[in-house]
Design a protein around this nucleic acid. Sequence first.
DNA 1: TTGTAAGCGTTATCAC
DNA 2: GTGATAACGCTTACAA
Lengths: 353, 353
Amino acid sequence: MTRGSITIGDVAAKAGVSRATVSRAFTRPNLLTPAVVEQVRRIADELGYVPNRIARALSTGRFGTIALLVPDIANPFFPPLIRAAQARADALGYAVFLGDSDETPDREDRLLAKLAPQVDGFVVASPRLDEARIRFHAGQKPTVLINRDIAGVPRVLIDVRGGIEMAITHLFALGHRRIAYVGGPAASWANQQREQAAMAAAQRFGIEELAIPAYRPTYEAGQAAVERLLAAGVSAAIAFDDIVAQGLVAGLSARGIVIPRDLSIVGFDDVLAVTTYPPLTTIDAHCADAGAAGVELLLEIIETGEKRDACQIIPTRLVQRESTGPVTTGEAIPGRSPSAGNRRRSTDQRGRT
Amino acid sequence: MTRGSITIGDVAAKAGVSRATVSRAFTRPNLLTPAVVEQVRRIADELGYVPNRIARALSTGRFGTIALLVPDIANPFFPPLIRAAQARADALGYAVFLGDSDETPDREDRLLAKLAPQVDGFVVASPRLDEARIRFHAGQKPTVLINRDIAGVPRVLIDVRGGIEMAITHLFALGHRRIAYVGGPAASWANQQREQAAMAAAQRFGIEELAIPAYRPTYEAGQAAVERLLAAGVSAAIAFDDIVAQGLVAGLSARGIVIPRDLSIVGFDDVLAVTTYPPLTTIDAHCADAGAAGVELLLEIIETGEKRDACQIIPTRLVQRESTGPVTTGEAIPGRSPSAGNRRRSTDQRGRT
DNA sequence: TTGTAAGCGTTATCAC
DNA sequence: GTGATAACGCTTACAA
């Protein structure tokens, strides 16, 4: 097994010191005579010696790597989160494994187990695994959750209530008194949280609020919910996320309904808002911040070794764009005729966060 | 140094065999009696044993990891690519480091150097580094390029010409005789390639084609290009990518121009087409396929050890949706009055691939 | 077919 | 301060 690279032994031999000394010259130079440190380093440089991280990892049990797990990289919620997490980890000297659980708890479980022996810790965004398994893995390796609230496991959460509150305040001010929450999958923790927050806030404002399921968090599901939305006779809707919102916008536009003149739509997450027409009013979840915060929290735990039961809340804010406006007729106008545009293919643009 | 995890020794003890046998049960089961293999595996499962890849790497010099480098995770072109690459690598037993060069050659260089000692190879999508440096790194570790054509370096390219050809055929059939190519950054290899292909194809059809720069590959740049597009008096435009296309759609819609009645728009990549309104006609670049192909090619090179100068072409196809239609007036109508909607914030939705 | 034992390159624990 | 030496967990000749 000839691995040509220069090892600590080569440097030690050439410098006339022991391998331990060479090691120390890099890891604990203050334990050595400055002159020795300098000489060793010079020789190491000459030889082009680079410490082998793998060997170091085997010896220390520290890898300088973390794993970031998400349910679906292609879900627009995650790329900004991944990007920020990666950048933060890189800046702090860590390399990042990326894992995609494809929305399935089993694959998440497998990835956790597979990567555990080569990482210092995990950031798991929107975990799909059940609480017991998460607790188990979190007990093995430092683990930070994003978008899931399990007491005792460090986590980064999004201030859903605050965001929803702002959205409802906004709609109330525009005169809306009967609105809908178009939800995502009933089993989703995020959806439950968002729906509850919406209901609670509406009640506080004396607004009538109907929950309309979209079942799946996709563009198509949003389109499919349009009929139910119109039947509900509301003047505004808050969607589970931007994807569902965009599905609603498309479905409504196809029926000749003009947004926001006839109906106001609020999204959630602010992941594609600005690329839609009309630009979507939405609740900015600062998902990039969540990613960065998750990594920071994890590395702090790793490096201090403390078992902090941290729970960091990422603030949200309402971004007012052009999909919301004042009530005109007071109710949505019924749909005209369905448009011709129906040849849409199935797509991977999912929306569950 | 207590690393609690289960080791090969634990399994060996419980199974009453040597550690070598356990090792072989996982790496070379065909050397063992099937019964032994099965028993060892069962016990390993019971104990929750997972081979320590670091230890394995130290022993074999192979890591079971690859790195995937992209210029910007949040650019919608990449998530499907990353997802497919990750899935393919995972299925073949590899873990994936993800690196984001943030569009800067230097960071790409740094990531390559930093990750090199812990991976078996690289997939670099849309490299920003100059040819010499890429050649250097490719000489050190197996490297596959996506979206960059450097002779001698294995690469996966997209059939831009074919896609453009289909788009122009489509526009020609609809009666368009004067069209525009709204380009991305002039320095981008992808943009040059796309522009050239568009010009060549138009010429073949006897179509008049104007190149309109968008300078940056963003939604905003697309919007900003609208004025120039209208001034050009064309009836259709092919955009550098879907993001720019979507910017055009938004800018045109804001001026009261109806798509495709007044103007036809074709995107490129098919990364957000279905979530827009109207649904975008676009050239599907099959970026997921490119990601999977990149990984497969890399792993083949790693595992066979062959230095193949492979150049794999990913086919494209035109996806006809609703942003293209027959010429009506023959020319675009001039803009009416600019809409009110102008409070758009700067965003990270970039589009350069 | 299976076991023994020598690495892989580093760091940690002792002595000196 | 510095040097032996034993881990770290696994793979792989080489024996048996």
